[in-house]
Design a protein around this nucleic acid. Structure first.
Length: 608
RNA sequence: GGGCCGGUAGCUCAGUUGGCAGAGCGUCUGGCUUUUAACCAGACGGUCGGGGGUUCAAGUCCCUCCCGGCCCGCCA
């Protein structure tokens, strides 16, 4: 930012110098300061850097942060970038006292171009296309998503079905967004003025877009009416009458990838509300209608749509484009997400494995880096989160940068959790309004510092081990005995800690990793014990046969091992080998005490 | 073919105006001699994708090449 910026702040009503505007048009810039205000000015957390850019433009409140998605199919974790990247910027601005609104458009007037092979019901279960009436769905190719019947029959349309799923994702993550249907923006006239404007200035529109798209020729009309006969989005406009507010069209064939969707040949008239702007115009039009100040988008938009969008915004609509930010895409277990092929994971699924705060934390990481969401290695993500949390509460020290980053990234990750956990501190359901209610924010931030600091985290992998115990009380007892819980740990903190056990054991089960301790009941695992170990096992079997509680058996394991000169850890491993065919496992004494005695005795004797 | 983003320890990543390559986990060793996992201490571990250049000094700046992804038709 040049020194001229400060001069323009006072007088220049554009609010920006060419230099600063140039810089904030770079979607990769992420608030890359030029050091004018010194190196200390550089924000450690990317969301703060973006917030700096937005603030420099002196936005009117509420500051509007937008995201968007096409409701074309399963909304996966990658799509959630649109919600969560904006969320962290929103929170950064709210912490500075700004009122911020997160709006999310569903591009539901876009035509259905092909049938995805996988869909999802409203509960977030992925289902095969074959599970619904694919034939009936196929009849709707070319029609706007909001005019396609919901294949599940539960919502008003296909578009609404998947928009609802996106709304659920935000809800599940505690993010307050307002969903705006693009179809509604057309139908209620919000887009009408801009549509008329574009059609009145077609030459300009063509000139600008033609710089980016070769197909824009003299016949190109930047409007796609919906056929009054077959309901498809058409591409051939034959006449425009903006005074009457109508266009005439012929319903011609539409190319969709390598497929062609047949037009019905109908010739008719449509109003400016009965159609849509092409995407390259629709995106900037949304910035204007919704007053968008910031919008994150995937890297696929960075080189094509964004530059043309800026050009169209400035030279056709004559508005300022929002502050942009590109995010890299995630992979899932090393492979790209694919809604149509079912290589996806939804927020609904992820929350069976992770606390919402950890999921939010995942999205607080540098957007410019491609990241793998590795189900196998979820324990690393959770450990990372736990460490950041300890850094935040000063329970552990790290590098200056780590501590500064934790200071900034942790509060927005945990805030909805804190509000939820102490919801009785708020009015009825008021914790949900934390985003925009200043009083509620103060309350939640106070709770975070004063009460949530006492939370307890059990390491994720150990939580998976505890999952071996079905009995909740036994889980808690073991956690307590291992020093994770103290006598004075508040009840809510015990609950918070123990909630992770179900998540981690689900993870162990799903990945079938070394923490998935499956009791090998049916067959005796292969073993290779020395004589001393075998003698010790026989003796331990006798002891178990007498009937003792878990605590006593645990002690006897040590005693038995000692008597036979078997190293303690080897003896435990022998037990785990016999029961699980593993070298580790849950605390052995309490565990075997819970099993039927005869099985344990026979197993320790290596009989079956 | 052209443009853009990324490539740092086995894994996940952090490295702010160029200034002695870092963390966590994993691994190994030792400690806690009745509580395996836990916890504590220590160690091992890197041609910072390769090569060249600028500089007293390069993970960081420049050039070039390699790898992965995206864009440069349409669509979104």
């Amino acid at each position: 930012m040049g020194s001229s910026m400060s001069e323009s702040d006072s007088g220049d009503d554009t609010g920006q110098t060419a230099e600063s505007a140039e810089r904030t048009r770079d979607p990769y810039a992420l608030g890359d300061h030029d050091g004018e205000r010194g190196p200390d000015d550089r924000a450690v957390f990317w969301a703060d850097a973006v917030a700096d850019e937005i603030e420099a433009r002196e936005p009117t409140e509420p500051v509007v942060i937008k995201g968007a998605i096409s409701p074309s199919g399963v909304p996966h974790l990658g799509n959630v970038n649109e919600i969560m990247r904006g969320y962290f910027v929103a929170e950064s601005l709210r912490e500075r006292g700004y009122e911020v609104q997160q709006v999310f458009t569903t591009d539901d007037r876009d035509p259905l171009r092909k049938l995805p092979r996988k869909l999802a019901d409203l509960d977030g279960n992925i289902v095969d296309l074959g599970a619904v009436n694919a034939g009936a769905l196929g009849q709707n190719l070319g029609r706007p998503y909001t005019d396609v019947p919901d294949p599940f029959g539960c919502c008003d349309s296909y578009g609404e079905h998947f928009s609802n799923l996106i709304a659920d994702c935000a809800e599940l993550l505690g993010v307050d967004i307002e969903i705006v249907s693009t179809t509604e923006l057309y139908e209620d006239g919000s887009f009408e003025e801009l549509t008329r404007y574009v059609l009145d200035n077609q030459d300009r529109a063509r000139d600008v877009l033609g710089e980016y798209q070769d197909k824009v020729d003299a016949d190109y009309v930047p409007f796609n009416p919906i056929c009054g006969e077959c309901g498809k989005v058409t591409e051939t406009v034959t006449a425009v009458d903006t005074d009457a507010g109508t266009v005439e069209y012929r319903c011609t064939d539409m190319e969709a990838g390598d497929q062609v969707i047949d037009g019905c040949g109908h010739e008719g008239t449509a109003t400016l509300r009965e159609g849509k702007l092409p995407w390259r115009f629709e995106w900037p039009a949304g910035w204007d209608v919704l007053g968008v100040d910031f919008e994150p988008f995937g890297k696929d938009h960075a080189e094509g749509s964004w530059p043309s969008g800026v050009d169209i915004a400035e030279n056709v609509f004559e508005i300022d484009p929002p502050v942009p930010m590109v995010y890299e895409w995630f992979t899932l277990d090393g492979e790209p997400f694919s809604s149509s092929e079912g290589h996806v994971v939804m927020v609904h699924d992820v929350l069976e494995l992770l606390e919402p705060a950890v999921v939010r934390y995942f999205f607080s990481k540098d957007p410019s880096k491609a990241r793998d969401f590795s189900i196998e290695r979820l324990d690393q993500l959770v450990d990372d989160f736990d460490r950041t949390e300890r850094l935040y509460f000063g329970e552990e020290s790290g590098t200056d940068r780590e501590e500064a980053l934790g200071e900034r990234a942790y509060p927005p990750s945990i805030r909805p959790t804190v509000a939820d956990r102490f919801d009785d501190e708020f009015g009825e359901g008021a914790w949900r309004s934390v985003a925009n209610d200043r009083t509620a924010r103060e309350t939640v931030d106070g709770l975070l510092e004063e009460r949530y600091a006492d939370r307890i985290r059990i390491p994720y992998t150990f939580a998976a081990v505890l999952g071996m115990f079905d009995d909740p009380e036994l889980r808690t007892d073991v956690a307590r005995k291992e020093g994770h819980l103290a006598d004075d740990t508040p009840e809510w903190a015990v609950e918070t800690a123990m909630e992770r056990v179900d998540l981690a054991s689900e993870w162990a089960r799903r990945t079938d990793n070394e923490f998935n301790y499956e009791l090998k009941r049916a067959t005796l695992p292969e073993t290779d014990f020395d004589e001393a170990t075998e003698a010790a096992l026989d003796e331990l079997a006798d002891f178990v046969a007498e009937g003792h509680d878990g605590e006593t058996i645990q002690g006897e394991i040590y005693e038995t091992a000692k008597r036979h000169g078997v190293p303690i850890s080897d003896f435990f491993s022998a037990g785990y080998r016999l029961l699980f065919d593993e070298t580790q496992g849950p605390q052995l004494g309490p565990f075997v005490a819970k099993l039927d005695r005869e099985f344990v005795v026979e197993r320790f004797r290596r009989n079956r």
